[in-house]
Simulated scan of single mutants.
Amino acid sequence: MRKWFALSAIVVALDLYTKYLIQQDFVYGEHLTITGFFDLVRFHNEGAAFSFLANAGGWQKWFFTAVTAVAAIVISYLIKKHHQEKLFSLGLALVLGGAIGNLYDRLTLGYVVDFLFFHIDQLYWPAFNVADSAICVGVGLLLADSFKKSNVS
């Protein structure tokens, strides 16, 4: 069980460290082109995924903080209960680490720092960070695990 929480801690550490580096080297809105399809940027997301509710007036910070705190408690319980289910626990550990990484930003800064920015010509995917990546991969693993379980029944 400790390995799943250790993985979550690694995700949090990597997320916070990369955000720290961006905050040290970039001013808000700055772009650095890396390739023809990828830039490093510094954006601030006051909402949820894809800036959902970013301009809601400030109440969303506390709403997303509360939702994330409850989710972290539930996920921790699920990891403890199902720690021997590798794929399920791996997915949960990644989601937990990502959620805590973004929660830390939201509590300390009032927004989440995003810096990975992919695009094709003038079509841009919303900027994201290591925490968001861990959450997406974790959810993908949870979906894969659910299909695996449904095939066994």
Results as ranks from 00 to 15, higher is better:
V70K: 04
D105R: 00
K80M: 10
E30W: 06
N129Y: 08
W59K: 14
Q84L: 11
A56P: 10
S153C: 09
D25A: 15
Q24N: 11
V139T: 04
R2G: 15
L92N: 07
L92E: 06
I73R: 02
I73V: 10
L53Q: 04
F147Y: 15
G138H: 00
G140K: 09
L103S: 11
A48P: 11
L53C: 05
G140N: 12
W62L: 08
L53A: 13
L90E: 13
Y111S: 12
W4N: 06
I135W: 02
D25H: 15
S146H: 13
V130N: 12
Q23E: 13
D39C: 08
N55W: 03
T35V: 09
S146K: 08
A99T: 09
V113W: 10
Q60R: 07
V137K: 04
L141P: 03
I10S: 09
G47V: 01
L32P: 06
A134L: 00
A56Y: 05
S51R: 08
L141D: 00
F128C: 02
K3V: 10
A6D: 03
T35K: 07
V130H: 04
I79D: 01
G97Y: 00
V95T: 07
D15T: 06
F64S: 03
A99V: 06
L109W: 02
V112E: 01
A71N: 10
A134Q: 08
F117Y: 11
V41L: 05
T65F: 07
S51K: 02
Y28K: 15
V152E: 15
V152R: 14
L107R: 05
F118S: 01
H119F: 01
S150V: 04
V130M: 08
P126L: 13
K149V: 14
N102L: 13
I73W: 00
A9G: 05
I10Y: 00
A72Q: 02
A56I: 11
F43T: 14
G101P: 10
L123D: 04
N151Y: 11
L78H: 11
F38M: 05
R2L: 14
C136K: 08
D25N: 15
P126A: 11
F118M: 05
T68Q: 13
S153Q: 14
I135S: 00
Y17W: 14
H119N: 04
V27F: 15
F5Y: 11
E85M: 00
K81P: 03
F147T: 12
L94C: 02
I79W: 03
L94Q: 01
F117S: 12
W4R: 02
I73N: 02
G110P: 12
L103K: 06
L142M: 14
M1G: 15
L141W: 07
Y17Q: 08
F26M: 04
K81L: 02
Y77P: 08
L40I: 14
T68D: 11
F38T: 09
E46I: 01
I10A: 14
A13E: 01
P126H: 12
K61S: 10
V95N: 01
L32N: 11
L109D: 03
N129D: 04
K149F: 12
I10R: 06
F38W: 09
V41W: 01
I22H: 02
F37V: 11
L123K: 06
H31Y: 06
L16M: 08
A56E: 08
F88G: 05
